[in-house]
Write a protein that binds this DNA or RNA. Structure first.
Lengths: 182, 182
DNA sequence: TGCCTTCGTCCATTATATTAGACAGCCAAT
DNA sequence: ATTGGCTGTCTAATATAATGGACGAAGGCA
């Protein structure tokens, strides 16, 4: 999916009834830059594009998601779910592909020995999940525990955390977090 | 909603078990650039970031929509999870019982022949889930579909919905809904 | 110990994004 | 026909992203 950032920005801008100069003023950039971006004469930096979109306003996630095919938003085949990692830890995302979702649902698979590491990002919001298969050691701040099938966790996501599969079996978790924008 | 592009890229990259150099080679950029991006010393152009993500591979939309799964504050043993019914449809509730949870997470088990009936209660909010085991027919509004392991659904709770296990095997689903209206 | 490889970071140069301001075209009201 | 305000485009200067190569640290192996 080749993204035509320029045409896309122009469409979004005009849809909101803004001129290049109006948007530039709101965004804190020059009108010339917006002109150049819309002609695809430059590829804006993420920070610049974010400034521009803030003037609309629109999130980066929404901007890049608008191009995606608008399939039925109720069912998701597992083949079409975005795969985030084919390594020791794999994630498959259900919702949150569109910006207006209230939450995201993930299927996580941890290979034996898999370790998310200590320095995971954390933001506002809450998250929780249920272990479906296998066992996994979950560490939150100072607390640590090994969860098995049927066990669960729930937390507000501002705490450092870590998932480690210490066993010899694959561990599967289904989790949800809200809000889905980070 | 300031996005930490650097930390996010690093998380995504390491989740895929790639080194900066490996990813750089796949993406057709230099390892130094990836280093600089991950340190937030530069804000990459959209074209550069796209090249980098193509090496993973991951779409820009997914990159800006997704973030890491967060860690837990609270653990739940499966024995302590409230069991809502032991009939053809059983539910085990993870969160939402205590305090002001943002959402509820449920483990649902449908025996063969189980049927939630036609007009499920509907409230405000959204719900979604992933099938973990077995198969189930899910009807949302006018759409109907049979989902298997790994398949998923997502809908706003005001839409009438129905779950029926037409097969001979137990079906397990992990679902989440917000706000927790149970 | 020494050698080799891979890791991530850093520096100087080059390529490119961004700015400030000028320009032509268009429409409405003199 | 002007003036004024608006549109989007373009150019030269400047800020910054991106490159290619060098560096030290860490790990495996002789």
């Amino acid at each position: 999916m080749t993204i035509d950032v320029g045409a896309h920005l122009k469409a979004v801008r005009t849809l909101h009834g803004l001129s290049q100069r109006e948007l530039a003023k709101r965004a804190g950039v020059t009108n010339g830059l917006i002109s150049l971006i819309e002609q695809n004469r430059v590829s804006p930096s993420v920070s610049s594009l974010k400034k521009v979109l803030d003037g609309i306003p629109m999130s980066l996630a929404d901007f890049f998601t608008l191009d995606e095919v608008q399939g039925p938003d109720v069912f998701f085949d597992k083949e079409t779910l975005p795969d985030l990692g084919s390594g020791p830890v794999s994630l498959r995302l259900v919702a949150a592909r569109r910006g207006n979702r209230a939450m995201a649902i993930l299927q996580e698979r941890y290979q034996p020995g898999a370790d998310t590491g200590e320095d995971m990002l954390s933001h506002r919001g809450e998250a929780g999940g249920i272990v479906c298969r296998g066992e996994i050691e979950v560490t939150i701040g100072s607390q640590s525990r090994i969860l098995g099938p049927g066990d669960a966790y729930y937390f507000s996501s501002s705490t450092p955390h870590r998932f480690r599969n210490l066993g010899t079996e694959v561990c599967e978790i289904v989790s949800a977090c809200t809000p889905p924008t980070f």
